[in-house]
Computed example of a mutant assay.
Amino acid sequence: MIGIIGIICIFVMVFGGYLLAGGKMGIILYSLPYELIMIGGAALGAFLISNDGAAVKKTLKDIGKVFKGPKWKPDDYRNLLCLLFELIRLARQNPVAIEEHIEAPDESAIFTKYPKILSDKEAIALICDTMRSASMNYDDPHQVEEVLEKRMEANAHHALHSSHALQTVADALPALGIVAAVLGVIKTMASIDQPPEILGKLIGSALVGTFLGVFLSYGLVGPFAVKVKDVTEDEAHFYQLIREVLVANLHNHATNICIEVGRQNTPSHQRPSFGELEEALKSVKQSAA
């Protein structure tokens, strides 16, 4: 919702101020379709040239993050801590019993309690791979933490590609606007024998290209790139929480301490309170009993 409000604010303030200053929309509306074809088409072409098919699809999908916000909400962080609590507790009570859950999470009575987390392949892979490695005696906390850190850095690099692609387009738009403006000037020079009122309209049409390139870059595409980056980085905290809890588990801390480590490493705007998490864990213990 706030993204839509921002877009409305940009258009109202820019064009409202222009109209209040005595500007007329006629020349802009007349030139807009042609300028959009040149600038938007060139930007789209450059975007397709510089990205493969998978990156294009991911970028178009990630644009929705501007309006939807982060995928993971406070309830999801609480549920993740509860899930990890159940898994760690079971692994310590019965190391053999945990295998059926981490080998087939889709059929696990524990994982299926949390369908949103279960639907995220990377979160499930991160949990199951780490716990499976621990069961195979690959349980040095420092080595595991280093492996997880490298894995998450690689995932973050891939996840941020959409924002980089959008920022590249944003950086190119002002120059593409100049290209459209130069073409407009060429058109104007071809009509140099026309009266001043016609030449004025032609020059105005040419300048719409420069305006449109800068407006799209700094008013829309650039902010979209920044928002996609912010949301992507916010979502990465979810996976970092998994790492913190599982590494704490490898240090052989008490299960409640492992979960508290995760809670305290949760971003403040997503972090469940100590009392709220305690109530959730009590419910988990009662359902397990």
Rank of each mutant, 00 (worst) to 15 (best):
residue 1 M to V: 13
residue 12 V to M: 12
residue 25 M to K: 03
residue 26 G to R: 01
residue 26 G to H: 12
residue 28 I to A: 03
residue 30 Y to N: 11
residue 33 P to Y: 09
residue 37 I to L: 14
residue 38 M to W: 06
residue 38 M to E: 06
residue 39 I to N: 04
residue 42 A to M: 13
residue 44 L to K: 02
residue 45 G to D: 14
residue 45 G to F: 12
residue 46 A to W: 03
residue 51 N to D: 10
residue 57 K to V: 08
residue 59 T to F: 06
residue 59 T to W: 00
residue 63 I to K: 02
residue 66 V to H: 05
residue 71 K to C: 07
residue 74 P to G: 00
residue 76 D to Q: 02
residue 76 D to V: 00
residue 81 L to G: 00
residue 86 E to A: 12
residue 87 L to Y: 01
residue 87 L to A: 02
residue 90 L to C: 10
residue 92 R to A: 07
residue 93 Q to M: 13
residue 98 I to V: 05
residue 102 I to Q: 05
residue 106 D to M: 15
residue 111 F to G: 03
residue 113 K to M: 15
residue 116 K to M: 07
residue 117 I to C: 00
residue 119 S to F: 06
residue 120 D to M: 03
residue 121 K to Y: 03
residue 122 E to H: 11
residue 124 I to V: 15
residue 126 L to Y: 10
residue 133 S to D: 11
residue 133 S to E: 10
residue 133 S to N: 13
residue 137 N to H: 06
residue 141 P to N: 10
residue 147 V to N: 08
residue 148 L to N: 01
residue 150 K to V: 11
residue 161 H to I: 02
residue 163 S to C: 09
residue 164 H to A: 13
residue 165 A to H: 06
residue 169 V to C: 09
residue 174 P to W: 07
residue 174 P to Q: 06
residue 175 A to M: 06
residue 176 L to P: 02
residue 176 L to Q: 01
residue 176 L to R: 00
residue 177 G to Q: 04
residue 179 V to D: 02
residue 179 V to F: 07
residue 181 A to R: 01
residue 183 L to M: 15
residue 184 G to N: 12
residue 185 V to M: 13
residue 186 I to P: 05
residue 191 S to H: 15
residue 196 P to S: 07
residue 203 I to T: 10
residue 203 I to M: 12
residue 205 S to Y: 10
residue 205 S to H: 05
residue 206 A to M: 07
residue 213 G to F: 09
residue 214 V to I: 15
residue 214 V to D: 03
residue 215 F to H: 06
residue 219 G to F: 10
residue 220 L to R: 07
residue 224 F to K: 02
residue 225 A to I: 04
residue 226 V to D: 14
residue 228 V to E: 02
residue 230 D to P: 00
residue 234 D to G: 11
residue 236 A to V: 08
residue 237 H to P: 11
residue 245 V to E: 10
residue 246 L to F: 05
residue 250 L to K: 08
residue 257 I to T: 15
residue 259 I to H: 08
residue 261 V to N: 08
residue 261 V to G: 11
residue 270 Q to W: 02
residue 271 R to A: 04
residue 272 P to H: 02
residue 272 P to D: 06
residue 273 S to R: 13
residue 274 F to I: 09
residue 276 E to A: 11
residue 280 A to M: 02
residue 280 A to K: 13
residue 281 L to A: 01
